[in-house]
Design a binder for these strands. Structure first.
Lengths: 342, 342
DNA sequence: CTGAAAGCGCTAACAC
DNA sequence: GTGTTAGCGCTTTCAG
């Protein structure tokens, strides 16, 4: 018994194509065709088959179908931390685009560990038609355009030869620095996230470069856990460094830092300006509302799915799409004029 | 070509069990056994087989395996709105428990629509070993302990005969009312969520009942969309009703209302007390921090997975587990003494 | 302990 | 237009 009637809970078998064919008095292949290639079967017989099918409550077994075709109409989304609101927009966008295309999302969490990432990929590999690796922590040499012959698309990470979509990590961070500069800040500090974070590294690079150009002092602190919990230590470090402006690896860290600043009686933005990245849920209603570099995460999720699906189709030549989504600075209440030098 | 070598991107076939068997000079069945039933094959030959397998980079095709066994080691989590932070804890807990048991989560979003819910269930049905339906919007008669002969577990909804796990929807809401009562409130308003929300209905029931017992006036407003965007209208309605205390269907709605109150210059909690449900991400750092009834969502997610895995195992008799997770009131800064009657 | 062979449910040539 | 048949990759009797 591997097979019973839906909804009833009784132990009758779930009907297969064979049952339908028998019921309709045709061969299995004909029954199959009336679902996969309707024009190639007589309208009348097809009608009979379809009737038989829903009389029996038949539904094709996607697994069996997939075994043959090699396609499951499923894409795997692998995130480094399912808990991080940063990914919500991504997940949502990916889910929507997948659903629109008739695909299903398989979600997996690596909890920041490269080993788990590999495991998880192996675990879902035979079920998915392709992978989206978001914020992958895998070493570069483990990353390629195909894993188990299935297309992979990177999100917020670029590796030569692998399709990817990232939110702008050059101009965006620069704007952040310029914004701070225009407010009169001259000493800034970057609150770093995980060492293996590609986007974190890019952000810091761009920030440092721009700061230097503008004659600002910039230094890197951390690494800190990219979470609210990481905030207090980061805030304290920032204060210790005597900066008037702090740029956090992400909004979570920024929000955590905000709290600590409040606790220590540091006025935001009067004494210190802070800016985050991502514009996550909550950034607009924390206290004070956070200035942050927003990326179109939903769009990124959607594009990633598109790329996987496109890669799955033949004939796209050897072009490796590497998309960059624009980021824009959302100025709220955590940035203000620098305190005049004491 | 449905099959190429992993990582290389070349078009070599992904090795199958047949390749391994050939390489090791044994029959397919022996190769199969050394993975699924090691004791039943000679240690030496098994070693040869295993070696051959990883020389070739063999990995079993879970699909083929599933076709035979009927088990995919996958559970489907169907949520009504993937965007709602309320579900994050649930998703996270479910993912963790699934991963621990060697299972994979398949996530699907119904966007609040019963029709989409049915579609989505159909779409993932052949891929999953069981379903978790969170906040299902399906009519009662569509819900049963098995769908397509696969176990279903309801989250935050109870239907006779169907296993479920809910967060406490009786004592919890009562405590909320008692809390408000003890602060001197006598007129409260409940900001209702979607009509089909089972938990919403339960909450309002418990609230009304308790309020009546305590001699408080309580009325139901709404329905409002259970989102931040729904907040302003809800807040205005609450003000119009002249209540001193408002209980919102969920935190999202409460946070949205908070904003509107601030805009309108209504002091929280001086003029109006507000409480939400769920203790979502952000409830602790919105302004003011929200008093809310927190449920152990992660635990709920974990339990739900446990229940579907358990239901999948035979011999658990005919007991239908209906679990209730305790809720607890988290008092923060949106509740305070009632204004003295003018 | 190992091999041959029959499927799992469905699709896709290839006949007729 | 419809039926026959050979698999997809793997597990599982059933023999030897």
């Amino acid at each position: 018994m591997k097979n019973t009637d839906r909804h009833t809970g009784t132990s009758e078998r779930v009907p297969t194509l064979a049952d339908v064919a028998r019921e309709a008095g045709v061969a299995i292949s004909t029954a199959s065709r009336s679902f996969t290639n309707p024009p190639r079967v007589n309208a009348r017989t097809r009608e009979r088959i379809v009737e038989a099918a829903d009389r029996l409550g038949y539904r094709p077994n996607a697994l069996a179908r997939a075994l043959e075709s090699g396609r499951t109409r499923t894409v795997g989304l692998v995130v480094s931390d399912i808990t991080n609101p940063h990914f919500f927009g991504l997940i949502r966008g990916a889910e929507q685009q997948a659903a629109t295309a008739g695909y299903t999302l398989v979600l997996a969490d690596t909890r920041q560990s490269p080993e788990r990432e590999l495991e998880v990929i192996a675990r879902i590999s035979s079920f998915v038609d392709g992978f989206i690796l978001a914020a992958s922590r895998l070493p570069t040499d483990k990353l390629s355009a195909k894993i188990d012959n299935k297309p992979v698309v990177l999100v917020n990470r670029q590796v030569p030869g692998v399709p990817s979509v990232v939110t702008d990590h050059v101009d965006g961070p620069r704007h952040v620095v310029e914004h701070l500069h225009s407010l009169g800040h001259r000493r800034l500090v970057f609150l770093g996230g995980p060492r293996q974070s590609w986007s974190g590294a890019m952000r810091w690079n761009a920030v440092r470069e721009r700061a230097t150009t503008l004659g600002m002092e910039a230094s890197l602190l951390g690494p800190f856990p990219p979470s609210i919990e990481g905030g207090p230590a980061a805030a304290d470090a920032a204060l210790g460094a005597g900066a008037t402006a702090v740029i956090a690896h992400n909004d979570l860290l920024a929000i955590g830092a905000l709290r600590r600043f409040a606790e220590r009686g540091v006025g935001i933005p009067e004494q210190v300006s802070v800016v985050g990245f991502d514009d996550i849920f909550g950034s607009d209603f924390c206290t004070p509302p956070l200035t942050t570099l927003a990326g179109p995460l939903e769009m990124v999720g959607r594009s990633a799915v598109d790329l996987v699906l496109a890669a799955d189709r033949p004939n796209r030549g050897e072009l490796i799409p590497q998309l960059t989504a624009p980021a824009h600075l959302v100025i709220r209440s955590t940035t203000g004029p620098a305190i005049s030098p004491a």
